[in-house]
């Protein structure tokens, strides 16, 4: 732990989104290598994002609803045409 943890973690989004330059990313990574709490926190942030993506596949009900919408929305004009 260091007195810089809070300030470092304020920049975490730029690190996660690959927005900063190589030098700044290196500085961030160096802090994580030396600071187990920050390292664990950033790993947990990354894991939470991974879980969100894993769980994000549209469900069967979402797919069925989308099919109904597509059919319903196209049908009246197809009939006219």
């Amino acid at each position: 732990m260091s007195p810089r943890c809070a300030a470092i973690l304020a920049q975490v989004d730029a690190f996660l989104d690959h927005e900063r330059g190589a030098l700044e990313r290196l500085r961030f990574a160096a802090h994580l290598a030396l600071c187990p709490p920050c390292d664990r926190y950033v790993r947990q942030l990354q894991e939470a994002r991974r879980l969100l993506r894993l769980a994000a596949t549209p469900s069967e009900s979402d797919l069925a609803a989308a099919r109904r919408l597509a059919v319903a929305h196209a049908r009246p004009r197809e009939a006219k045409g």
Binding site: P58, L63, A70, H73, E78
Partner: peptide
């Protein structure tokens, strides 16, 4: 109609 169907088939599941 085919364009609306395409739009909804492409984006519908994610929107729902």
């Amino acid at each position: 109609p085919a364009a609306w169907r395409q739009l909804l088939e492409r984006h519908g599941p994610a929107l729902v």
